Amino acid sequence: MTPFGWRCVCALFGILMVPVCYAFMRKISRNTWIASFAAALMVFDFMHFTLSRIGTRDVIVAFFIRCCPGIR
């Protein structure tokens, strides 16, 4: 429960969100190029970069929302 711990965990989830974004778009579009483009957009998105560095819970919540299957 230190500032370094919060930032480290959020940075880890921010890094893990890139392959999750790739897998999500690959499943939706069934196209490798579109999935790669979506992952590249996630890498170069400054809002995602900022949120994963300042230690807020938004990145962790977004990671688990993106990992969940759709509610039926």
Rank of each mutant, 00 (worst) to 15 (best):
residue 64 F to A: 01
residue 21 C to S: 10
residue 62 A to T: 09
residue 7 R to Q: 11
residue 22 Y to E: 05
residue 5 G to D: 03
residue 63 F to C: 06
residue 23 A to C: 08
residue 42 M to N: 03
residue 52 S to I: 05
residue 43 V to E: 00
residue 32 T to M: 10
residue 72 R to Y: 15
residue 45 D to I: 02
residue 19 P to E: 06
residue 64 F to E: 01
residue 20 V to I: 09
residue 6 W to M: 07
residue 52 S to C: 13
residue 40 A to L: 14
residue 35 A to V: 00
residue 28 I to R: 15
residue 34 I to P: 06
residue 68 C to M: 15
residue 60 I to Q: 06
residue 36 S to R: 10
residue 3 P to N: 07
residue 1 M to H: 08
residue 4 F to N: 05
residue 52 S to T: 09
residue 65 I to T: 13
residue 68 C to K: 15
residue 4 F to M: 06
residue 41 L to Y: 15
residue 3 P to F: 11
residue 5 G to M: 04
residue 59 V to H: 01
residue 46 F to T: 07
residue 38 A to G: 08
residue 69 P to S: 11
residue 27 K to F: 10
residue 62 A to E: 14
residue 6 W to P: 03
residue 24 F to Q: 13
residue 39 A to N: 06
residue 28 I to C: 05
residue 35 A to S: 07
residue 50 T to G: 03
residue 8 C to P: 02
residue 64 F to V: 01
residue 13 F to W: 09
residue 47 M to G: 08
residue 43 V to K: 00
residue 45 D to Q: 03
residue 65 I to M: 12
residue 34 I to Q: 03
residue 29 S to I: 07
residue 64 F to Y: 08
residue 31 N to M: 00
residue 21 C to E: 03
residue 45 D to R: 04
residue 61 V to E: 09
residue 60 I to G: 07
residue 56 T to C: 03
residue 57 R to Q: 02
residue 63 F to Q: 07
residue 35 A to F: 05
residue 28 I to F: 13
residue 47 M to P: 02
residue 41 L to K: 12
residue 10 C to F: 06
residue 23 A to V: 06
residue 19 P to A: 09
residue 16 L to H: 08
residue 48 H to P: 01
residue 71 I to Q: 09
residue 55 G to A: 00
residue 61 V to F: 14
residue 20 V to M: 08
residue 3 P to Y: 09
residue 3 P to I: 07
residue 52 S to K: 03
residue 23 A to T: 09
residue 30 R to L: 12
residue 39 A to P: 15
residue 42 M to D: 02
residue 43 V to Q: 00
residue 69 P to F: 12
residue 35 A to E: 01
